[in-house]
Design a protein around this nucleic acid. Structure first.
Length: 808
RNA sequence: GCCGCGGUGGCGGAACUGGCAGACGCACAGGACUCAAAAUCCUGCGAGAGCAAUCUCAUGAGGGUUCAAUUCCCUCCCGCGGCACCA
């Protein structure tokens, strides 16, 4: 048993003193760069959980390996420090969020350091510090100048419990992502970032990224591109026209009614014509009150009200059709109005059935058919046109654009993604740097006046109004343009704005009077490897991509995508196979594992549990296996030192295994297959142990190679053994071992002999034995002859270096 | 409902490009050491049959392709994750 406590402390101090993990201008000149980044944590009051070290260990192994193989590595860590929990804690306990955050960061930093990660702490950043959020505000102003940040009154998601608006991405199942309370719609004036302007590029650039496919798919679906047509419907006896977006213009002849979203502006304008206005207005009011959850989740039950006295003209056949309002049509997508084709759309079908509206089939799967069948569900597939005038008989895909053309429709592309709502009516965030003046209107805070400091004299209690409004020192100000009394914007920015650009800040010297410098970005960006949880698929990862593209178009960046490679760590479940949570009481604290088994053991264990990206359960009992492995290594080197057995008896098998292991571990680190890399190290160590037990000795080269391979995984133990074995330099700065490909290849291979596909025998043969000789040997074998039983082989398959299959 | 990921011993998991299924580790059993225990070391360890050599079955279920399938194709079942009326 080695003394992990002392050894780990010793080497953590040595690394810090020697500043081995800090980037240097010297290396910048001669080495190839690698920027390896972890998604920075929100420093919660619970401290680190075992999920954090999983990703951090992976990047650390990767970075240590990269440094040893001659790269200049930037590996920074920081704090995503603004956010609701600290503020909620302030409301409950009265402790200022700045204080809570400071404490939590201290804990996180201590815990992260205790794991021996090779971060460059000189680059540490904190999004809640004025040095940082000053530039978040700068970012806002840049977007504002470009018209990419704008204020708009719109129906937005409102969380009653958090008393703030939420971005679309933060509404989960109609409920607030944080507090799980239902989200309601509110009409409010809010700040947005124009993500939609980049919808097409955000979609098309996905192909260029080395990211997990599921994440790319999630983004693709979230962006939700669909091609279709805008078709204009005249309203009977009025001068109003109604535009509808459809992806199925081919079904226009089957449009038997129209539906407007309850919030559609035209509804109010038609008040005079609507005979049942009272009923219509009541419906509108009730739709507004419904939560997202109610609106979406009661999906089976469609509801709606006809606009009596209002009819539209179907431009395809000039038929007069009714117009309804219903909340299954969303105001925020397309034009907020649809042409309803119940025969070919599931939702329209359900609605038509409920309100006994006509269903007319116009796309027939079996053509020519004498009559169209009566449908018991909508038919959404393809086929040929029927009941569609001159288009009858055309394949529906062709009819799409022919019909669009006939009715003078416009071919358009729609996206599901919405602009990013970034205002928050909360305290603990970066203030939006805007001033409202009665004379000058909306005035951006001049860059020189940044940062707009978050005031401290604030009552945190959320009332639906921004807490900052209650700070007199903050709210009232004179207009920077005309000097007259004016007021500050009192909302803060979504914390996702802070995290949307932090990777651009790290590479710079910390005390610069700019958000980042061109030189530092040119050298370090884009991030070569980014690691974090998959839960950010359509949040942070999408926002960061958007910000990168926006800054590029503003002339600040010269690359299109921030993160070239992305890997997601899988979730670690509790021992009961359930998600770790306080209420279940299945949370594992890394501190405890470090105390009992050591940081190296924890690191190795988390990597050995299973594939990096897989969800896997924690198993306290299995940790001992890793600790035994490290103890074995310790004992081996101790024994060799005591006995002075440091000369190796030439052992070709061991040498071969060593080279195979070097190759495997190298390859596995590069592909993030850490579990199999560790298993290879175990196999090697077991062999080294056997050799040592026979007093055969181990050469310097062999002893070094094992430690070098171990170093990225268990850096403390590797340093200690490296030193004890006579080295005076750090293993963290040593060179990664190389392998000899000729030694990796086996000269003698085991050849399997199958009879009718079943393995019956095996023999050893030189790897380059030709097919004929293999076949001859296989057939000559007694066992094989027995299985053939005198029959004539019908076919013999020979795979060189692997097997012979005899079919009889 | 749609999309994605997965299902291999008692457990976590290996398996290159289709080529001996179960590497490595945990647990378990037997042995060595010990007065004894712990630790450590050695051996065994998918199921069934057999004294044994060995044989049969086995990668969620069923079918298919192939000389050969955990791996490729089809149908279905189960678990997990995401999206959720996007016209």
């Amino acid at each position: 048993m080695y003394a992990h406590k002392e050894i780990e402390k010793k080497w953590q101090e040595r690394w810090e003193e020697a500043r081995v993990f800090e980037v240097s201008e010297d290396e910048q000149k001669k080495l190839k760069k690698r920027y390896v980044l972890d998604m920075f944590p929100y420093p919660s009051s619970n401290g680190l959980h075992v999920g954090h070290p999983e990703g951090y260990t992976a990047t650390d192994i990767y970075c240590r390996y990269l440094r040893m193989s001659g790269h200049h590595v930037l590996h920074p860590m920081g704090w995503d420090a603004f956010g609701l929990p600290a503020e909620n804690y302030a409301i409950k306990e009265g402790t200022h969020p700045a204080e809570t955050t400071r404490k939590n960061i201290q804990t996180f930093k201590r815990q992260i350091k205790s794991l021996g990660f090779s971060y460059d702490w000189s680059k540490e950043l904190n999004t809640s510090s004025p040095d940082y959020y000053r530039w978040t505000q700068w970012l806002f102003l840049q977007l504002y100048k470009q018209g990419l940040a704008y204020k708009k009154k719109a129906p937005v998601n409102w969380c009653e419990s958090c008393q703030t608006v939420l971005a679309n991405e933060q509404v989960v199942n109609g409920a607030c992502e944080r507090c799980k309370n239902p989200v309601v719609q509110k009409e409010l004036e809010q700040w947005f970032f124009k993500v939609t302007q980049y919808a097409e590029e955000l979609l098309s650039c996905l192909d260029t990224l080395d990211w997990p496919e599921p994440i790319k798919l999630a983004q693709k679906n979230w962006i939700g591109r669909s091609e279709g047509a805008l078709i204009e419907f005249k309203l009977q006896a009025t001068s109003y026209k109604l535009q509808a977006f459809t992806t199925r213009p081919d079904t226009l002849f089957g449009a038997t009614y129209m539906v407007l979203a309850p919030e559609h502006a035209l509804v109010a304008q038609l008040k005079e014509q609507i005979k049942n206005w009272k009923e219509v207005d009541a419906y509108r009011a009730s739709a507004r009150k419904k939560t997202e959850l109610e609106r979406a989740h009661l999906e089976k039950e469609k509801s709606g009200v006809p606009l009596e006295g209002v009819t539209a003209i179907n431009p395809a056949n000039n038929q007069e059709i009714p117009v309804w309002i219903a909340d299954y049509v969303l105001a925020s997508y397309g034009t907020g109005a649809i042409m309803a084709v119940p025969a070919h759309d599931e939702r329209d079908f359900a609605f038509a059935k409920k309100f006994s509206l006509p269903i007319r089939m116009v796309v027939c799967p079996h053509y020519p058919a004498p009559t169209c069948p009566v449908l018991d569900e909508a038919y959404e597939g393809g086929g040929h046109m029927v009941e569609s005038g001159e288009f009858n008989g055309l394949p529906n895909e062709e009819a799409k654009w022919a019909i669009t053309k006939k009715v003078k429709g416009e071919r358009v592309t729609q996206y599901r993604i919405r602009d990013w709502l970034i205002s928050r009516q909360r305290y603990w965030g970066a203030p939006i740097p805007i001033i409202y003046c009665d004379t000058c209107g909306t005035v951006p805070v001049p860059s020189a006046d940044l940062p707009v400091l978050l005031p401290t004299d604030v009552d945190f209690k959320p009332t639906g109004e921004s807490p900052l409004r209650r700070s007199k020192s903050f709210h009232k100000i004179s207009c920077p343009t005309c000097g007259k009394p004016a007021r500050r914007e009192s909302d803060t920015m979504d914390t996702f704005v802070c995290s949307s650009w932090y990777y651009l800040r790290y590479p710079n010297a910390t005390e610069i009077a700019e958000p980042f410098t061109k030189e530092s970005l040119a050298y370090w960006l884009p991030v070569d490897m980014y690691v974090g949880g998959a839960e950010h698929a359509v949040l942070h990862l999408l926002y960061a991509r958007f910000i990168t593209k926006a800054l590029r178009d503003l002339g600040y960046l010269s690359f299109d995508e921030p993160f070239a490679r992305l890997r997601n760590q899988g979730m670690i479940l509790g021992e009961d196979g359930e998600k770790m949570s306080k209420s279940r009481g299945n949370v594992i604290n890394p501190d405890d594992v470090i105390a009992s088994h050591g940081a190296d053991t924890l690191r190795l264990y988390e990597m050995f549990m299973g594939p990096f990206e897989a969800t896997k359960p924690w198993s306290t009992g299995s940790i001992i296996g890793i600790r035994r492995f490290l103890d074995k290594a310790w004992k081996l080197y101790e024994r060799l030192e005591v006995r002075g057995e440091r000369l190796e008896v030439k052992k070709p098998i061991l040498e071969k295994l060593l080279h195979k292991t070097i190759k495997k571990v190298t390859h596995d680190i590069e592909t993030f297959n850490f579990n199999t890399a560790i298993s290879a190290l175990m196999i090697l160590l077991n062999e080294l142990g056997k050799t040592a037990q026979k007093h055969e000795g181990l050469s310097q080269k062999t002893r070094d190679a094992f430690l070098l391979l171990l170093a990225p995984f268990a850096p403390h133990l590797a340093e200690e053994l490296w030193e004890r074995d006579g080295h005076s330099t750090l293993i963290a700065r040593a060179s990664w071992p190389t392998w000899d490909e000729t030694l990796v290849k086996d000269e003698i291979v085991r050849v399997i002999v199958q009879v009718n596909g079943k393995p019956r025998d095996a023999f050893d043969a030189p790897a380059d034995t030709d097919d004929k000789a293999l076949q001859k040997e296989a057939l000559a074998r007694e066992k094989v002859q027995k299985w053939i039983g005198g029959r004539q082989p019908k076919k013999i398959v020979v795979v060189r270096g692997r097997l012979v299959n005899i079919v009889v």
